[in-house]
């Protein structure tokens, strides 16, 4: 059965439990980072951070502070462009498991040429793939394939305190997403589900993507 995530940003408190849990579960070492005038750290996805919470602040039309949080990760597209591009060079470098819909970067990504790597990276509408210089692999969120295979939720979902993240069967998750959207619109009339028809990781955004992150949604 195809799986899906709902990430309801209107419930996220940016506690970053998901960001850290992802590192811990995947045994990813820490980066040396700097304070650059933002809580968002590391500043971007990288081979050691397959999930990060992005922070965006602004004043709304009435002068109220708005602080949006965006736990960013691979969307596991239903028709992953990255796979189409990679398939032209190294079949099997990127695979999509049809049953669950999990999109995986495999060890074969090491066989991609630098040009291919750039092509795959540029093709992603969400700016997700990262190149690991040490292993020469392309890397990204694997939806905790090991856990999902064992009937466990991805570790980020498990860790989330407020129910901002929901994981399960695609149809059920989409149903939940639509209900949430209806509720959320009472407070945030411009709220929408980002690219729900095309991805397995569906974000509920309270306002336009320019108030989250430029790649928060494609449409």
């Amino acid at each position: 059965m195809p799986k899906a995530f709902l990430i309801d940003t209107t419930r996220c408190t940016a506690c970053r439990g998901c960001q850290v849990a992802c590192k811990e579960w995947h045994d990813l070492p820490a980066n040396s980072t700097k304070q650059r005038g933002s809580h968002q750290n590391p500043p971007d996805l990288n081979p050691r951070n397959l999930k990060i919470v992005r922070f965006h602040e602004h004043l709304d039309a009435r002068g109220n502070v708005v602080w949006n949080f965006f736990p960013d990760q691979c969307r596991h597209c239903l028709t992953p462009i990255c796979k189409d591009v990679a398939d032209m060079a190294v079949p099997g470098a990127i695979v999509r498991e049809p049953e669950t819909g999990i999109v995986l970067f495999t060890e074969k990504t090491a066989e991609l040429s630098p040009e291919d790597v750039r092509a795959v990276t540029d093709a992603c509408p969400y700016n997700i793939p990262r190149y690991n210089e040490e292993t020469r692999h392309l890397v990204k969120c694997d939806m905790c394939v090991d856990r999902v295979s064992a009937g466990l939720p991805p570790v980020c979902v498990k860790t989330c305190p407020t129910g901002a993240m929901v994981f399960g069967e695609r149809e059920e998750v989409l149903e939940t997403a639509r209900k949430r959207l209806e509720q959320v619109r009472q407070q945030y009339p411009k709220a929408y589900l980002a690219d729900a028809e095309d991805v397995s990781v569906v974000y509920l955004l309270a306002e336009g993507k320019e108030y989250y992150y430029e790649y928060a949604s494609f449409m």
Partner: peptide
């Protein structure tokens, strides 16, 4: 704990745009 230090690595001071302007301070200074 390196995974935590990574998320908040260094001491910061949160201040308003108004005060920053008054003092000639830019974000990250």
């Amino acid at each position: 704990v390196p995974n935590l230090l990574e998320t908040e690595p260094q001491l910061y001071i949160e201040l308003s745009h108004e005060l920053a302007k008054e003092k000639g301070i830019r974000n990250g200074d």
